[in-house]
Nucleic acid binder design. Structure first.
Length: 559
RNA sequence: UGGGGCGUCGUCAAGCGGUAAGACACAGGCCUUUGACGCCUGCAUUCGUAGGUUCGAAUCCUACCGCCCCAGCCA
């Protein structure tokens, strides 16, 4: 055993390390990520994916990808490909270890027969309603089903009939015979098989019965030789049942189930059910809407796999109910892109600026660094001429204190270009549009002050003659409140943020951006990080999604 | 009211009987051709509460309080 003096492990990694060091336990780690193909993966799944694949990689073990497809009523083939693509994109690999719970249907059935033969499972004819009555309540014990003492022979006969399709849905169910008085409701003769005459996406019409999660999951884990079965807190009460099935059936392997708390983030919802609702009710534009915290949505927004993995690493693993500040996620993408993203000049809300002492037909090309601190990223040329666009927010006729951008009589630096001074403002009598008239200092080419005078403000700009018109989408948090699910009486959708999407179709890009490859990311200086949408961009005509804004201490002060 | 879990800074989170890491947020300052980035400083005499054990407790014991999960033939 090597001594590990690294940073603190979470409690699961600590358990795994101890188990691996224990000679009575398996010395190879096998974990698994078991999604149900009934929706898209979200950032909460990313936490589980990073944990499961992470511990496997850290311990030279392996992590299986297993689709938990035991309920054909809810599952669809289309989700499988999407889930696979999302996990791959996140950067994880399962090699040959791609499985489906449905691969084990025959084995599950054999185990069920074994249970019947042991006198520990029976076919029950109670309806769903009746079963609920017999189950008792949280404080009162349940009652035994009148069918509980059927003979093994009869149970075997009935179970075979269920499988064959002799009975209608809901007429029979196979249950484990455990303890109707258990304080843990999961142990009150839980269901094993229900009759469902539905076509399964992989087994077709071969089966008329499908196993319940509790029965299928522990057996799938055991069959695959999983050593550590990591899941979320709500399954804690199921652990005694997980262990009961495996102990009773004496499976060769008996994985250890360990639970951790699920991820919650402020200003969003995380359940697949609710995300599906947003999609089907058209509150968003599909599963990959950039406002959705699905993996596909984050990818479309422009997040990098690295940022998401880093986020999962820093939030930690524990058993405490928590809700992480969305700012932590945003900080992760800023941190990643600050290093990687080339800079560009883009005006989102254009305001015309005319340089009166600059010759009408003259043009210039300035050199702009692609990254302020990494010269290896090179530079590019940006064209300049008499008329340019600046950001509306960078000019004020009556500037407040500490506003050191442009205003009448003020001098600012045009990034990489010249120092200009605002002489006057003119409103076009016809269009009503504002025009800022300036003079420039020819000696300040590049943006430096020849006489060393201090110019505090630097603003971005794009040549009006050369700029490219483009669409840019701005995104804000999907919900207006920190916890949209706080009040169960109120529909979470009433908290949707009406301003979560703003489409700007009049933005001006510096010419070099015409060649922005779909899927590429930039920092638009002084504004934020943007992603050339891989779905809506076309050659020579990128459409940008705002990934995250830059920190803005001026905006903060103005508040 | 039965069972299971959890309570350390605004939000996450280390800590495992020897005197409260770190991250995000926040507040100041420096730097600056991005009010960005970076850098510096500050930010829990206190660990849900109350008792107890101990030279010493966030860590051990007892009681209480609060929050989450469970009564699907969902996962």
């Amino acid at each position: 055993m090597t001594i590990n003096n690294e940073k603190p492990k979470d409690f699961i990694r600590a358990i795994i390390a101890a188990d691996l060091a224990d000679s009575t336990k398996p010395d190879e780690l096998v974990s698994r990520f078991p999604p149900e193909p009934n929706g898209y993966l979200h950032i909460g799944h990313a936490k589980s994916i990073c944990l499961n694949f992470g511990v496997a990689a850290e311990n030279q073990g392996c992590c299986h990808l297993r689709f938990d497809d035991t309920n054909p009523a809810k599952e669809e083939k289309k989700y499988i490909g999407a889930i696979i693509a999302d996990i791959r994109w996140l950067g994880f690999d399962w090699g040959e270890n791609l499985f489906y719970a449905s691969d084990y249907f025959e084995q599950f059935y054999e185990y069920a027969v074994k249970l019947v033969k042991m006198g520990l499972a029976y076919v029950c004819d109670l309806s769903a309603d009746e079963m609920r009555q017999y189950r008792g309540t949280l404080t009162e014990p349940g009652q035994n089903s009148p069918y509980r003492n059927r003979t093994i022979t009869e149970n075997l006969f009935l179970l075979a009939g269920m499988r064959r399709g002799d009975f209608p849905e809901g007429s029979h169910i196979l249950r484990a015979k455990i303890d109707m008085a258990s304080p843990n409701l999961n142990m009150r003769d839980p269901a094993i098989y229900r009759i469902r005459k539905i076509t399964h996406h992989r087994t077709g019409n071969e089966w008329n019965i499908y196993p319940i999660y509790d029965f299928a999951h522990c057996l799938s884990d055991a069959i695959e030789g999983i050593t550590h079965s990591l899941c979320t807190l709500e399954f804690q009460d199921h652990r005694p049942l997980y262990d009961w099935y495996l102990d009773t059936l004496r499976t060769e392997h008996h994985p250890q189930q360990i639970e951790f708390s699920r991820l919650n983030l402020t200003y969003t919802v995380m359940s697949k059910r609710k995300l599906l609702q947003l999609v089907t009710e058209n509150m968003v534009d599909g599963w990959d809407d950039p406002r959705m915290l699905t993996i596909a949505g984050l990818r479309r927004r422009g997040y990098t796999p690295e940022a998401i993995r880093n986020f999962c690493a820093i939030i930690g693993i524990s058993k405490k109910d928590s809700r992480i500040d969305m700012g932590v996620l945003e900080n992760c993408i800023r941190e990643d892109l600050n290093e990687k993203a080339p800079r560009a000049l883009v005006v989102l809300h254009p305001l015309k600026l005319i340089i009166d002492n600059y010759p009408d037909d003259q043009e210039d090309e300035l050199t702009a660094a692609n990254h302020p601190k990494n010269s290896a990223m090179g530079s590019r040329k940006v064209p300049f001429c008499k008329e340019i666009y600046i950001e509306q927010a960078d000019f004020m006729e009556e500037p407040p204190k500490k506003f050191y951008r442009l205003a009448p009589g003020r001098e600012v630096r045009l990034r990489f270009a010249y120092l200009v001074t605002c002489e006057y403002v003119r409103k076009d009598p016809v269009t009503g549009e504002l025009e800022i008239h300036c003079t420039y200092d020819p000696a300040s080419r590049g943006g430096s002050a020849p006489d060393g005078r201090k110019v505090k403000g630097t603003i971005h700009w794009v040549s009006a003659r050369h700029g490219i018109n483009a669409e840019v989408r701005l995104y804000d948090r999907l919900f207006a409140v920190e916890n949209p699910e706080a009040d169960s009486e109120v529909d979470f959708k009433t908290h949707l943020n009406p301003d979560s999407l703003t489409i700007l179709d009049n933005c001006v890009l510096e010419p070099s951006l015409a060649g922005a490859a779909p899927g590429s990311r930039y920092q638009f200086e002084r504004q934020g990080y943007f992603y050339a949408d891989h779905k809506d961009s076309s050659p020579g005509k990128p459409v940008f999604n705002k990934i995250a804004g830059l920190r803005d201490s001026w905006a903060k002060r103005a508040k």
